[in-house]
Simulated assay, not measured.
Amino acid sequence: MSSPLSSTKTAAALRTSARASAEVLLVLVAAWVALWVLGRMWSVVWPLIVALFLTTLTWPLARFLRTHGWRPALAASAVTVFALLVGAGIVALIAVPVADQSGELAERVVAGIDKLREWAAGPPLNIGDDQITGALDTATAKLQDSVGSVVTTAVTGVSTVVNGLVTAVLAVFLMFFFLKDGPRFLPWLTRQLPGRLAVDIPEVAARSWDTLGAFVRSQAAVGLLDAVFIGLGLWILGVPLVLPLAVLTFVSAFVPIIGALFAGFVAVVIALVSNGLMDALLVLVIIIVVQQLEGNVFQPMIQSRGLGLHAAVVLLAVTLGGSLAGVVGSLLAVPLAALIGVFWKYLREQLAEDTPEPEVVDLSDGTGSSPAPS
């Protein structure tokens, strides 16, 4: 016979569980409050995030100029002007043609979905499930509605355009100040914080900056390579809308896993509608080959340090971010998950036994690798 339960141990276990549940609940409430405050301040936070992303891309050039004798203000000014010229060139050479063909791209995707539905309903599949047909009809209707709303917004959404311009201007100004004064931020932060916080917060900030920079630069480089190779394959096969599809491939690279699947699906559907089944299969082969090169060659060469996230975590983060905040949430989900991972790793290091305290790196001379923003 089994021994009777100890009332003392049972009560102690219940108290421990209740205390742990209350602490977890408090953490969740604090996270919800932080997200609510973030949403209320989004008009300021969004330009800050864009500026951080831009700074991670342009900081290597600014650091190169600073280490070769350029004063911080002059180096930041030169890099900012260069970034503006590159952005203007992208708008002139890519964005305008893509905008002109975006309506045709959406129409061809809708036509491709209809063709796939007709093919699935015939032999050899003979799929006649009303639920599948209804789901496809719903997806097609939503896509058509989205196309209409995008066109309406482009014609009448003056406020959206103004908000976009304000965000862009603020992001450029913030990027300039980050490039100019960023290396002085961590020493300044160390002087402002009391006690142990003067060590912990600057260390976590430096690690977070390195992680964010590695993510943005590696994804941009890999996305560019994907866009070039896939675009070249589409051009050789004579698939229409090559430029919009290449741009879509590049942008989708910033949403790991989900972005590649979405861009590949659109390219295959366009090829199926325009060139037929054989070219669609060839496009699918090209995309698979390029994705294999990306996973086994491009990323190991370009991304020296991984984000430390399992593929399942990345997939769940992108799905959750998209459900909570749409496209913006999908874009920010992976870097945010990586930053949470940085914090958790540092916390584990500090809670481990016999762990030496980290030293704060002084970046005030402008030669460090982490220009944490001011």
Rank of each mutant, 00 (worst) to 15 (best):
S2F: 00
S3Q: 14
P4H: 11
P4T: 09
L5S: 02
A12V: 06
S21R: 12
S21N: 15
S21G: 15
V24H: 13
V27T: 12
W32R: 12
W36Y: 13
L38R: 10
G39N: 10
W46V: 15
T58Y: 09
L65Q: 02
R71N: 03
A73M: 04
V79T: 04
F82M: 14
A83P: 09
V86Q: 10
A88K: 01
G89Y: 00
I90K: 00
A92E: 04
D100M: 04
D100T: 09
A106V: 07
V109S: 02
G112V: 04
L116M: 15
A120H: 05
L125C: 08
T138F: 04
T138Q: 03
K142C: 05
K142H: 13
Q144S: 13
S149R: 09
V150S: 11
V151D: 13
T160M: 06
V162Y: 03
V169K: 07
V169N: 08
V172H: 02
L179S: 13
G182C: 14
L189M: 04
T190K: 02
G195Q: 00
V199H: 14
D210S: 08
L212K: 08
R217K: 10
R217F: 08
Q219H: 11
V222R: 01
A227Y: 13
V228T: 15
F229C: 14
I230S: 07
G233P: 07
F250M: 13
V255S: 15
A260S: 10
F265K: 12
V268I: 05
V268F: 00
A271E: 14
V273Q: 03
S274C: 10
M278Q: 09
L281R: 05
I286P: 04
I287Y: 11
Q291W: 03
Q299T: 14
P300E: 03
L309I: 08
G321S: 03
G322D: 05
V327R: 00
G329V: 07
A337V: 14
A338P: 08
I340N: 01
G341H: 00
G341P: 01
V342K: 02
K345I: 00
V360H: 11
D362A: 03
G366E: 01
G366D: 02
S369I: 00
A372I: 08
A372K: 02
A372W: 10
